[in-house]
Amino acid sequence: MAQPKPRVRVPKKADKGDVVEIKTLISHPMESGQRKDRKTGELIPRKIINKFACVYNGNEVFSADLHPAISANPYLSFFVKVEESGEFEFTWVDDDGSVYTQVSKITVN
């Protein structure tokens, strides 16, 4: 359960020139660094996903810089105009340096 798990929704097929909606979700507490431990009173160290990027056939088409105000299990949706079949690569960067990735293929006619 330790490894954050990404979930991505990309249409399997689209027509050339279509604008498709992409939705992403990843399991992550988004610990804000502003919260105190109830028992000790100590601040719980910040640990968030601070960066998300979507690369389509080698080109970054969308990215987001995220701050602690983003809810746990960060959700992002956006659009991409698809011109050719290929691959979407999604990456989430954690404060601790970990990078989580997910790949989805799309067929464009």
Binding site: K5, R7, K23, L25, N73, Y75
Partner: peptide, 12 residues
């Protein structure tokens, strides 16, 4: 179901 974060645990 996609937007429902409960499915992160259901998938696991």
């Amino acid at each position: 179901d996609f937007e429902n974060p409960a499915f992160l645990l259901v998938d696991l």
